[in-house]
Simulated assay, not measured.
Amino acid sequence: MAKQLLFPTSVIGSLPRPEFVKHLISDDAPYSDDEYERLMGYAIHASLAMQEAAGLDVVSDGEWWRKSYIGVIAELAHGFELSTNPADGRPWTIVVDKLSPKNPGFIAQEVAYLKKLTGRNIKATVPAPALLGERMWDKQKSSKAYPNRDDFVQDCVPIIRREIELLRDEGVSIVQVDDPHLCLFVDAQVRSQYDNPDRAADFAVEMNNQVIEGIHGIKKAVHLCRRAGARARGEADHRGGFEPIMDQLCRLKADHLTMEFITPGSGEMDVFRKLPEHVEIGLGCVSCQPGQIDSVDTIVARVEQALKYLAPERITLNPDCGFAPGSAANVSLDEVYTKLCNEVEAGRRLRDRYGK
């Protein structure tokens, strides 16, 4: 049996989109489907080349095939309409009819393409059901199909679960459920807006567990997103340590939790003591904030802080969050490359220091 690699390096999922990629996925791009797939394929080659040149052990396609991260659910199921959010004018995918399967395997096709290009471990990402309920259910537009938001969330579960099964069959190494909604409940101000915040957090965990429990043959991860990406866009800054949701986190049926610890107000790493010992941690130890490049020494120091509570075998190095906070975000790909190179070098130093 091959010896487990200590301190493997990974991305969360998304990578910055260059301007030509943003143009390719825009609604007014003048390309046929075949031409789009050809050009985007070249872009995915470049995305992968950057990650492999940096030396990452776990790679993704940067989520470049997707026009919208959570909007990908509309590729998997009928029942949605593309609208405009009256709050900010941005595109808004909203549920308006009962869900039914549409194109199972859409995300699995992303992995099938990437597998042709690399022999490294591949991560694929899916949105959490409760997140979809928070973002894609509207009281006025959705209530005819789903008078209750939670009923919509529950109908998302079999759609996402089927996609994870297809990803497993495609040979993906890691499937990651991204759940920034669950992490909102670390914030006292957010909790005050709910009659029973613990029940709402319990529901999010239950839905995640229904999505992943009992699926074997892949590593199942949950990204406990602290909205670092949102802060990069200048949006709400939700603060608070993980303590208020530790009971919920301990009930997640995941093999791996990715947790942010760099952004202000993220709390202390001693919460790791409370997690089940079989759970691996994807440690947010590299800033995804534009303009902030952590040195190798800084990254190593952050990991060594986590080693006070975790065995080396449980730690994967990764950025604090995705590098592309929104499809239109202006983030330097060259800067990200430097950050990933530093992450990889930190992993090497840690292996040299703690390898057996």
Rank of each mutant, 00 (worst) to 15 (best):
M1A: 15
L5G: 03
T9W: 01
S10H: 11
V11L: 15
S14K: 10
E19V: 15
V21I: 15
K22W: 10
H23P: 00
I25S: 09
A29W: 09
P30C: 05
Y31W: 10
S32Y: 01
D33E: 11
L56Y: 01
S60H: 02
G62V: 03
W64Y: 04
W65Q: 05
R66E: 02
K67L: 05
S68L: 04
I73R: 10
E75Q: 14
A77C: 03
E81M: 13
S83M: 11
S83T: 08
A87G: 05
A87M: 06
A87V: 05
P91R: 12
P91A: 12
T93H: 09
S100V: 01
K102G: 00
N103V: 00
F106D: 01
F106Q: 01
I107C: 01
A108R: 06
Q109W: 08
L114H: 04
K115A: 13
K116A: 15
T118H: 03
T118S: 15
R120A: 04
T125C: 13
V126W: 01
A130Y: 11
A130G: 12
L132H: 06
G133E: 10
R135L: 07
M136W: 04
K144A: 14
P147L: 10
D151T: 08
D155K: 13
D155S: 11
I160F: 03
R161Q: 12
I164L: 12
I164W: 07
E165R: 06
R168P: 09
I174W: 04
V175R: 05
V175W: 04
D179P: 08
H181Y: 15
C183H: 02
L184Q: 14
Q189E: 15
P197I: 04
R199E: 09
V205W: 09
V205H: 10
M207A: 12
M207D: 03
N208Y: 01
N208Q: 11
N209Y: 14
N209E: 13
Q210E: 14
I212V: 14
E213P: 02
I215W: 11
H216S: 13
I218L: 12
K219Y: 03
K219D: 10
H223P: 04
C225G: 06
G234K: 08
R239L: 11
R239G: 06
G240C: 07
G240V: 03
G241K: 01
F242W: 14
A254E: 09
H256K: 10
E260L: 08
I262M: 12
G267Q: 09
L275T: 05
L275C: 07
L275S: 06
H278L: 01
H278C: 02
V279G: 04
G284L: 02
V286W: 03
V286F: 06
C288A: 14
Q289S: 14
I293C: 06
I293W: 04
D294Q: 06
V300Y: 01
R302P: 05
R302F: 02
E304M: 02
Y309A: 04
L310F: 00
A311P: 07
P312E: 14
P312Y: 12
E313M: 07
I315P: 00
D320I: 08
F323P: 05
P325N: 08
G326Q: 09
A328K: 13
A329I: 03
S332H: 13
D334A: 10
L340M: 10
N342S: 05
E343R: 00
E345H: 02
L350M: 00
L350N: 00
L350Y: 00
R351Y: 04
